[in-house]
């Protein structure tokens, strides 16, 4: 989880985790020079199709996070119940302050 939140180095038991984390971050921030560097770095240990698919997933989540934020959806009840500890550990709840839903 620290790998996801950017608080840990290494691969976090995910194959090529550090590179994929950096690639995801660069794609999400639209830092194309960094993406190009990471593509070259990744080519040493990953197939082009693997890098392409990682970028496809990142592109998709760059879009769907905008839908979630733009529509102001709330967490599903089931997810909220099962992810209390995870959300506390990661600080994700900080991304959903009460003002997000406070009218005028």
């Amino acid at each position: 989880m620290a790998l996801v939140m950017g608080a840990a180095g290494g691969d976090g038991n995910v194959p090529r985790g550090a590179l994929l984390r950096a690639l995801a971050e660069a794609v999400a921030r639209w830092r194309w020079e960094d993406v190009g560097s990471l593509r070259r770095e990744g080519a040493a240990g990953m197939a082009p199709r693997q890098l392409s698919d990682a970028i496809l997933v990142a592109a998709g989540f760059n879009g769907i996070t905008r839908i979630a934020d733009a529509i102001g959806i709330r967490l599903d009840a089931g997810t909220a119940e099962t992810s209390v500890a995870l959300r506390a550990e990661t600080g994700i709840d900080g991304f959903a302050p009460p003002r997000k839903w406070a009218a005028g």
Binding site: V4, L23, E25, V27, A28, T65, A68, D69, L75, I92
Partner: peptide
């Protein structure tokens, strides 16, 4: 990992 990292960078709570 990629999906979660993009969500975190975008500060999306969902």
């Amino acid at each position: 990992l990629v999906a979660a990292r993009v969500s975190a960078v975008n500060e999306c709570f969902y």
